[in-house]
């Protein structure tokens, strides 16, 4: 028999035109299951009105971001054992800095509009992926092989970002990281966006985005690098090189 825990889930609830509240559900769980599994159990066995978003259950789609005890998590890969203990209360809330659709579901349209605006790459040559293979281990002909980019567009970085909380105009971590991924030299058309008031200069270097990113994008480092690229691009403009 797998280990059994008794866990109380405290879930943020909100329906249209109703005041928000928290509902609690006490359930038996296997601590090796994921936070998303516990939420899905609530829907399957306790309350069919619960709304939450999920799809792939293995961190490739980015649909199931939530705040778990106040911290942004991709819930499908967050084992219960890693965030709570037997007999505890686990608070689960929707991502911040997005409008709430219902319960744990937010409207991330703004993020997708920004990702479209910066032409974020959905697929890229395997040779350009920042992955454990050092660049030298690829053969030139491997550039024909493509892979999905690391960014899941899950919105965790936007939820955790203290600057995104102050203005919706800020491009935010994932879109800025997507500009860095393309590079100022190859994509000078993105310079005005990166260099704008709502681009790289609005970042306060809190590094919360990198702390919560579930997919190794490291947006904070990319934003710092993009600042260097922006300065370089502007110098090239001035000196005509």
């Amino acid at each position: 028999m797998p280990e059994q825990w008794t866990l109380t889930l405290r879930l943020y609830r909100q329906k249209a035109n109703e005041a928000p509240r928290y509902d609690t559900f006490t359930l038996q769980v296997n601590p090796d299951e994921y936070v998303l599994d516990a939420v899905e159990r609530v829907w399957a066995f306790h309350d069919r009105s619960l709304c939450f978003r999920h799809a792939c259950h293995h961190s490739t789609c980015g649909a199931c971001g939530m705040r778990v005890n106040g911290v942004e998590k991709l819930t499908c890969i967050t084992p219960l054992r890693a965030v709570t203990q037997n007999g505890a209360v686990l608070t689960i809330e929707p991502l911040r800095n997005f409008p709430i659709v219902s319960d744990l579901v937010v409207d991330m349209g703004d993020l997708y509009r920004k990702m479209e605006r910066v032409n974020a790459r959905a697929v890229l040559p395997v040779t350009e992926a920042e992955i454990e293979h050092p660049a030298s281990t690829w053969n030139p002909e491997d550039a024909q092989y493509l892979r999905l980019s690391d960014c899941l567009e899950c919105g965790l970085c936007i939820s955790a970002c203290p600057v995104a909380a102050t203005t919706a105009a800020y491009l935010g971590p994932a879109p800025l990281a997507a500009i860095q991924d393309q590079g100022m030299r190859r994509h000078p058309e993105l310079l005005p966006l990166a260099d704008s008031e709502d681009g790289v200069w609005r970042c306060h270097s809190a590094f919360e985005c990198t702390a919560v990113c579930p997919s190794f994008v490291d947006p904070a480092r990319r934003i710092m690098d993009l600042r260097r690229q922006v300065v370089g691009a502007k110098l090239r403009q001035v000196f005509g090189k």
């Binding site: 799809a55 649909a63 579901v105």
Partner: peptide, 14 residues
């Protein structure tokens, strides 16, 4: 009843 692909499709092998 849920969101896009919340059942079998989302969890497909790929």
């Amino acid at each position: 009843r849920g969101d896009i692909c919340n059942g079998t499709s989302g969890r497909t092998h790929g």
